[in-house]
């Protein structure tokens, strides 16, 4: 049997603030199968970002265990975690996080640099990825010359080219207007359809509806975990919902 892509058991994260200990995550268990599109929802401070950092191996838990692709990665050293991030995980950030002094194509190549992809292949895959996000003509533009939506598409191309199985998107539409946000979400859906697992962190219910499954969080704990029920043509419904959330609210 294929093990689940993500198997988090009782993940707990505490921060020390002086003498006090703040619990950011109270023991979250979560299993995500390969190919899922899951949204983690919750207000700010609910622990969703902390959970994403743990899943993205940017941090390690205070307690609990985390298996990624069947492998226990709970206590990996910094270098091993970096290697795993480079090969298996792609990040999409709210603030795009492109290097301002590198061109679009250089930004796309960056992730592959750390994954150890040879230079020529990097260039090839970067071009293909940029074309996929319809930015083939913007390869040599600086991030400053691109609109927010275009920048986020470059960031998506960066993930796409590196080709990790798991994509963690932290409020990817948070800095975009709704129409642009919709384009970005459509791209993420495309990525999901090609077999990539997407974990989307958002506080926006309309955005969360693009996912197939929603985990709600509050005060560091997961309070619900349910599949998204859709009507026929649910994608359309979801995108309309993004544009006018109140109309599609049940």
């Amino acid at each position: 049997m294929v093990p689940p892509l993500i198997q988090a058991t009782e993940l707990r994260k505490e921060h020390r603030l002086g003498d006090a200990t703040v619990t950011a995550l109270c023991g979250v268990s979560l299993t995500i199968e390969s190919g899922e599109f899951i949204a983690i929802m919750g207000p700010s401070g609910s622990g969703k970002s902390t959970l994403m950092h743990l899943l993205g191996l940017l941090d390690h838990p205070t307690a609990g265990s985390y298996r990624l692709g069947g492998r226990d990665v709970t206590d990996l050293g910094a270098d091993e975690r970096a290697r795993t991030r480079a090969q298996k995980i792609g990040f999409i950030f709210q603030a795009f996080n492109l290097l301002g002094r590198s061109t679009a194509i250089e930004n796309v190549e960056l992730a592959m640099t750390y994954a150890g992809v040879p230079r020529k292949e990097r260039r090839l895959r970067a071009v293909t990825a940029l074309e996929k996000v319809s930015l083939g003509h913007r390869q040599h533009h600086w991030p400053g010359q691109l609109s927010g939506g275009e920048q986020q598409r470059v960031a998506i191309a960066r993930v796409l080219a590196a080709g990790p199985g798991l994509i963690l998107a932290d409020e990817p539409t948070g800095a975009l207007d709704t129409a642009t946000g919709r384009e970005v979400m459509a791209l993420l859906q495309d990525l999901n359809r090609t077999g990539r697992t997407i974990v989307l962190v958002t506080h926006d219910p309309a955005i969360a509806r693009y996912a197939k499954r929603i985990v709600r969080m509050q005060d560091g704990c997961a309070i619900s975990d349910e599949a998204v029920v859709r009507d026929v043509g649910s994608d359309d419904a979801a995108s309309q919902g993004l544009a006018c959330p109140e109309k599609t609210a049940p």
Binding site: G56, R85, L110, A111, A162
Partner: peptide
């Protein structure tokens, strides 16, 4: 700092 954070997220090791 942000660039460093990004590089780390993309898989740069400490020594990189």
């Amino acid at each position: 700092t942000r660039e460093i954070g990004l590089r780390q997220a993309l898989g740069a090791r400490r020594r990189d």
